[in-house]
Design a protein around this nucleic acid. Structure first.
Lengths: 135, 135
DNA sequence: CGATTGAAGTTTAGTACTAAACTTTAAAGA
DNA sequence: TCTTTAAAGTTTAGTACTAAACTTCAATCG
């Protein structure tokens, strides 16, 4: 299925760029972007929004905490997540660059095609989310 | 980017189905499908066509060979790959079921939308393949 | 020939990810 | 109040994947 191939290519390219420029990988970027956009988020919610397991998030955060990008603040039985100074700096640097790269890649499509793609993906997304796997 | 999210969801669902029904994961399915479609293919070519490294393929084949799905036949300095009896059986079982599942998921889209999606992805794919990452 | 080169394959170290077991703790119920 | 339950988080074992080092061997060059 071409969808998967294209997504894989895009992800690979984004990953290479991230690693070269900022020493991040895709997973770490996702965490940085999400926490940056919703500081105070709790680990389980972060995992949900990234479509990964909480175990995975726990491990990722261990590394990112060691690198000084993220801070866990325990609160009751949860951990609230915040960017550190360095994390905040990186967030401001990386996210806009990343988005402009995506725009650049999408620029081979006409405005109309971009609109169509967006509509189709939204429909697919909703359908996949709404209907749990029938079998 | 929604493209990545949708692809991730699709892949997850396909993976769950594959694992439940046939004890395969996505990577193994890819290998099975590719080798089944092009028996005699060499490891490096297989890696290229799956967009992964040859190291990864070597490891995957180790497992699949142990499970009796695939056979390596050394030839000069290359290994040609073939399905075993069991691999051939699985190939015949799995690939059609997999495709019908994809069709099912795509059925929320109209014919026209499917056509548009296909055209757009082809365009993106070609663009990503043709232009090496500019920076 | 024998040495060099380079392609194919394997191995190794490290990260990402999952599933599942385990730990901790807030909250609900007896 | 004490017990039970369940949610959040951590840990563990196993697969997938990459990059890079290493091995093997065919072909080419001296």
């Amino acid at each position: 299925m071409r969808l998967l191939r294209v997504a894989q290519r895009v992800e690979r390219e984004l990953g290479t760029r991230l690693k070269e420029r900022w020493g991040l990988n895709n997973a770490q970027f996702d965490v940085l972007a999400r926490v940056g956009a919703a500081e105070g988020i709790v680990q389980q919610r972060l995992a949900d929004s990234l479509l990964v397991t909480k175990g995975n998030v726990a491990q990722l955060l261990d590394r990112m905490e060691k690198r000084g990008l993220i801070e866990r603040r325990p609160e009751g039985r949860t951990n609230r997540l915040y960017l550190t100074e360095e994390g905040r700096y990186l967030f401001a640097e990386v996210v806009p660059g990343h988005e402009s790269l995506i725009d650049e890649r999408l620029s081979v499509l006409s405005k109309e095609e971009q609109r169509q793609l967006s509509a189709i993906l939204r429909k697919l997304d909703r359908s996949l989310y709404g209907e749990p796997p029938a079998g």
